[in-house]
Design a protein around this nucleic acid. Sequence first.
DNA 1: GAAATCAATGTAAGCGCTTGCATAATCAAT
DNA 2: ATTGATTATGCAAGCGCTTACATTGATTTC
Lengths: 343, 343
Amino acid sequence: MSDSRTAPTLNDVAREAGVSTATVSRCLNAPDKVVEKTRIRVLKAVDRLGYTPNFAAQVMAAKRSFTIGAIIPTMDNAIFARGLQAFQDELRDRGYTLLVSSSVYSPEIEQEQIRALVARGADGLLLIGHDRPKEVYDYLDQHQVPALVAWSHLPDALLPSVGFDNHGALRGITEKVIDMGHRNIAMISGVTKGNDRARDRVKGLRDALRENGLDPEQTTVIETSYDIEQGALAFRDLMASTPRPTAIICGNDVLAVGAIREAHKLGIAVPDEVSITGFDDMELANVVTPSVTTVHVPHREMGRKAARELTEMVAGTSKGRSTCLDTSVVMRESLGPPPSQAR
Amino acid sequence: MSDSRTAPTLNDVAREAGVSTATVSRCLNAPDKVVEKTRIRVLKAVDRLGYTPNFAAQVMAAKRSFTIGAIIPTMDNAIFARGLQAFQDELRDRGYTLLVSSSVYSPEIEQEQIRALVARGADGLLLIGHDRPKEVYDYLDQHQVPALVAWSHLPDALLPSVGFDNHGALRGITEKVIDMGHRNIAMISGVTKGNDRARDRVKGLRDALRENGLDPEQTTVIETSYDIEQGALAFRDLMASTPRPTAIICGNDVLAVGAIREAHKLGIAVPDEVSITGFDDMELANVVTPSVTTVHVPHREMGRKAARELTEMVAGTSKGRSTCLDTSVVMRESLGPPPSQAR
DNA sequence: GAAATCAATGTAAGCGCTTGCATAATCAAT
DNA sequence: ATTGATTATGCAAGCGCTTACATTGATTTC
């Protein structure tokens, strides 16, 4: 029994089973290298002692952890939840454990978390977006940790990515808005600094406007953090401006929902007086009234694909292929024609 | 420079700075034990080499990781997000790193994740709720890992907890519903198996009914997973039953929102024809139309308190005190008097 | 100026595991 | 039986760090 106050070690098991530590280790990691009779005896000892391998020791000795780290900008809302859940599910199927931490949209914290995860022996890393200091990439390179970017797709970035075309998607929804007859369009965007996804979306808007003969310079873009309250505030500001926009394109569903809530509060009818669109197709978008016309992102597929790709990179069977997934516009209630259609 | 393909070790730094590894280690962990001149030299070497300590080695040698693990039932919706974010913030302030994983409401996976986290050297664990196999507690005990339960409060459970009174809270909101004049009440509950919080809430409902002279036996309780879609389905079923309940108490906001969405779809007016209440006061609750009358839970406070308590347990300055936080009913739009007030 | 004291640094023993290599056991073939 | 080929197991060297203890050198005290 040894000291019951202390977790048993390989050694304890070896002694209990009357074999060497090497044999015990092999029983656990390469069972076919050990003859059945011994194996059974060892496994019984493992059971009897309630032995769990010490992970730190394992990592140190084997330099392999079967752990993947992911750093997402926030856990505060569900933007990344669905994709991440799928990512974890697929990782589990492949024998990996996922460790998640949140950077709270701060590059410094992200860097810190990356170090923490790498130091902890993560075999690979999932990061969101491409924007980060070069030194981070140097660090990953030096430590030889495979990393993959999700939620964004840039064909020739430093890291491979499994994501979607933020620019094209926003352009797509803008076109729908223009097709509806809107000419006076504004945007509530997420913070673009250090966030290539947000930036690309704004760019998508501008390009769509330009291509349709509208002046991007005359379009107000309010930048704010992804937060319902902030979306509400920004909406209020936009409604106070002249000429008042007839459509407001939001960089994400959270902002759109904030805008809708504020519209409700101000007694402004959506979409009759003003149209509002979102991005992400979160559950939220289909639950508010009116429901949000938005860009559907295949989160689950992205998560699974990312897991597959990253584990292959870790195993050395892939050098990291980038994938661009398709997005689509989901028409719901919050987008309609502008009010004075017949001016 | 050494081999640029490999991360530098303590040894490399020691050589570079012309000191022993012990001195380098001390520079990093107990800077005042080393004279300034040497310290500067060492830190320069650290910088030059881009050295990061190998965590596994540190854990192994020091048997201390400054890592806290948390296992939450799901990341799929935001139920735990806010509390967890506060937990992480407070941990950061105290020099700890948080690692999160999700058990997908499965006891087996939770157990697996606990092992993973403990084996990884987590100094302490945050768990949700008290319901789990005894062997898990044995395991924690054997490995001497302090653990704390949140989102639930049971004074004399095996583990200390920082939570709130699920039973009392649900009783409280039920009383409000009864005070409004409702006599025919139903509930949509989360799955109670392995979930003491859900179970306590149902019990709270039953007790409130009984205390107010209503028959708990005549009250329908539908059990389903915390999912908007499921909430919608359950609501539809309830509306089809006779006598149709005039108030539906939901075990959580997600279910309530699902119910509200379905009501909208079915053309049933809330609260004019049927009242709906939630639990948690998630952001979601204040965004849908009508907004959800719900039980406010002090998530942030709970997260911070839990972090404080758990770090003290880890440091050995506390044996684990339990705290019960106050909840309150937030009156919003989804609760009103029953339709045929004057029968 | 020698002895005693104290601060700064070095030495080296683990921490619990994996794994290359050596050795022992087994088996088939002569 | 003997040999050689195979297979199963043991031995022991790390993996990169922390830390008790030993050593050194500087400073104080009488």
